[in-house]
Amino acid sequence: MNKNFWKQKKVFIPIGIVIALVCIIIGFMIYYNSSTAAVSDEKDPIVFVVESGESSELVLNKLAEQDLIKNSFAAKLCMKFNGLSDIKAGNFSLNRSMSTKEILITLNDITKAKDDQIAITFKEGMWAKEVAQLIEDNMGISKETLLNLWNDDDYLRSLMGKYAFLSEDILNTNYKVKLEGYLFPETYMFKKDATAQEITETFLEHFNKIYLKYQGDIEASGYSVQEIITLASVVQYEAAKKSDMDMIAGVFYNRLQEGMMLQSSVTVCYALYDDLTSGEDCEVNTHIESPYNTYLHEGLPIGPILNPGEEAIHAVLNPKDNDYLYFVADVYGDGSVHYAKTLAEHEANVDKYNLRK
């Protein structure tokens, strides 16, 4: 055996380890830099609320859920590497073009908290009167004042010159609330002394961003903005999951194309409005006379029945192609939706899941 073999071996082993370590370090740096980079180049402000007493881990998880950071584990490393664990409670304005480090620096700076503003979260599917009540509870502006403003034709006409998505269609005297459907669900920060008009236009400004995003799809759909938002509101009410929104939108289009009534019980819910006490009311009052009731009137209800989120709007503009005409949700079970092509199949689903009225 060559006497130099072991000498050569002793040299090769350390070099191999060094190379491996270098590769690991380079790989880690690539992962870390990629995972803590900005999520996108979108600069639209996003309200982020840190509640008093929340742990840093919970805050990082919330940032990830709101798609403000890519990776909560990498963010935790960033926080430790840069000494940014002293996160303050308050309302902060962030955006997705900020890196993880920039976001953490902001959350560690109490001067960046918007103490003169109130953050309010409006969930998908809220009725306008529920939105108004939430504003009253948090800001003191009466629900009645807001609802009167949202039904004020002169004010609404003044908005039409500013927002292309608003048209004379909303000035229907039979509407419960004429701005129903356009109070876009989101977390907003309002100045504590904001007026009812300023609050209203904050909603509409955000809706305008969604409208511009889908304007081409809306124009290509053959439906008006009002009709798209109306159908989206029904889909939002009917479905709990995005996948079901896509399918249910497809079912409703199939029914419209077949000349069938939509027969959506959620439109009955809105027809009942102040008289609604439970979900069962919607199932047993399909005879109620109302232009919102799709059991009595063909086509779409006369207007939106709630304020839909982006997923519902997207579903209506991009429905899942299917050949179903019926669906029913297992409301007493796991909430899954069961689809059928024929009335007989649908009734079998209703019996199977014990959903008979």
Rank of each mutant, 00 (worst) to 15 (best):
K320M: 11
Y253M: 09
G259V: 12
K62H: 09
A194Q: 01
L171C: 06
L104Y: 08
F165L: 02
V331D: 07
K176R: 15
M1Y: 11
L325Q: 05
S264C: 09
S85R: 02
N322R: 12
S72I: 11
L179V: 03
N148R: 15
V331F: 10
G279Y: 05
V251G: 00
R96S: 00
D217Q: 15
E205S: 06
A164K: 01
V59F: 12
Q236A: 11
N318G: 01
R356K: 15
M260N: 01
I199F: 03
D217A: 14
P319S: 13
A132Y: 01
R96K: 10
S85L: 03
F12R: 12
A132W: 03
E283H: 13
A271N: 13
S40H: 10
I313H: 05
K88T: 04
Q117C: 13
K213D: 05
W127D: 10
V47M: 06
S224G: 05
L156Y: 01
A20V: 14
L276S: 07
I105N: 11
D275L: 10
G333C: 08
P308G: 08
N61I: 14
N71S: 15
I120S: 05
L231A: 09
M98N: 05
D281A: 10
G27I: 11
N33R: 15
N151Y: 03
E227K: 14
I135T: 01
M139F: 04
K192E: 06
D275H: 10
S34F: 12
T100Y: 15
F184W: 08
L256A: 04
I229E: 02
C269L: 13
F122L: 07
N307H: 10
F327S: 02
A37S: 15
V225M: 04
N172I: 06
G222I: 12
L171N: 03
Y332K: 14
D334Y: 08
I118Y: 05
C269A: 14
D246P: 00
A312G: 00
V316T: 04
N2W: 04
C78Q: 11
H206A: 09
V59R: 11
M189I: 10
L204R: 01
D275K: 13
D351R: 14
K129R: 13
V337H: 13
D86M: 03
Y214G: 06
Q8K: 01
D44K: 07
Y188V: 00
N2I: 01
S56K: 15
N148I: 14
E283P: 00
A315I: 09
V131H: 01
L77T: 13
Y223P: 01
D330S: 09
K70N: 14
Y326I: 01
L325A: 00
L107D: 06
N254E: 02
F92D: 02
Y292R: 05
L276T: 07
K101S: 05
G16R: 10
